[in-house]
Amino acid sequence: MPAARDPEATKARIFAAATAEFAAHGIAGARVDRIAREARANKQLLYAYFGNKAELFSQVLESCLTRLAAEVPVDAEDIDGWVERLMDYHAAHPELIRLIYWEGLEYGTERFPHEEERKRHYDRKVAVFAEAQEKGLISSRIPPADLLFIMISMVSWSTVQPQMRRVLTGDTDEDRARLRASVQEAARRIVG
């Protein structure tokens, strides 16, 4: 008797395989054949469930961003804690930053699929900084959207450029702890 089909399990395997493939090779370099093979799924199912490769990439990235938002909500009232949790998350999930940077390389200054949805996603995060500024909890010298951009950039750069982190700041546990403390200090000064 043939095994019963489980579309949700198949979709989950495709998603996991696609996340790894896109993080490693970007949108242009990713191969649907490799995703299907790794997911132990029929290539036609991949297209049926997710449309084309670009749409699959968009869905994978949106899922990763949604997971980040749920696990590490923006906390403008505890900048040290938020920065630490965000750095921990990126260290544990470097594929997210790689996906974002591949997206930037692929689309550059052009609009990308689901850009308006992404903007709404970040608008909610910007609102957290704006509210903290209105309450006087953090400085309002920097507009909240710029502040979020600067914070994300500081926190994520060591994941994006691990070789530069290693060359400039070292690669021991002590070096990484010192860099983390430095990023936290910079974040405190920016919002102070």
Rank of each mutant, 00 (worst) to 15 (best):
A3T: 11
R5C: 00
D6L: 03
E8S: 02
A9Q: 14
K11C: 04
I14W: 05
A16Y: 03
A17E: 09
A17L: 12
A18W: 01
T19E: 10
F22L: 04
A23C: 10
A24C: 04
I27T: 00
A28P: 03
D33L: 09
I35H: 10
E38A: 13
R40V: 15
R40P: 01
K43A: 12
K43M: 06
L45E: 06
A48H: 15
Y49A: 11
Y49R: 00
F50G: 05
N52I: 10
C64T: 08
C64D: 06
C64Q: 15
L65K: 01
V74W: 03
A76T: 12
D78M: 08
I79W: 02
W82S: 08
W82Q: 02
E84W: 00
L86S: 14
Y89L: 04
Y89I: 04
A91H: 09
A92I: 02
E95H: 10
E95W: 06
L96Y: 06
W102K: 03
E103T: 08
E103P: 00
Y107I: 07
G108K: 01
E110C: 02
F112I: 07
P113L: 12
E117V: 15
Y122H: 13
R124D: 12
K135T: 05
R141A: 10
D146F: 09
D146I: 08
F149R: 11
I150H: 03
I152E: 15
M154L: 14
M154Q: 13
Q161H: 11
P162F: 10
R166C: 00
L168Q: 12
V183I: 13
E185L: 15
R188M: 01
R189S: 00
V191M: 14
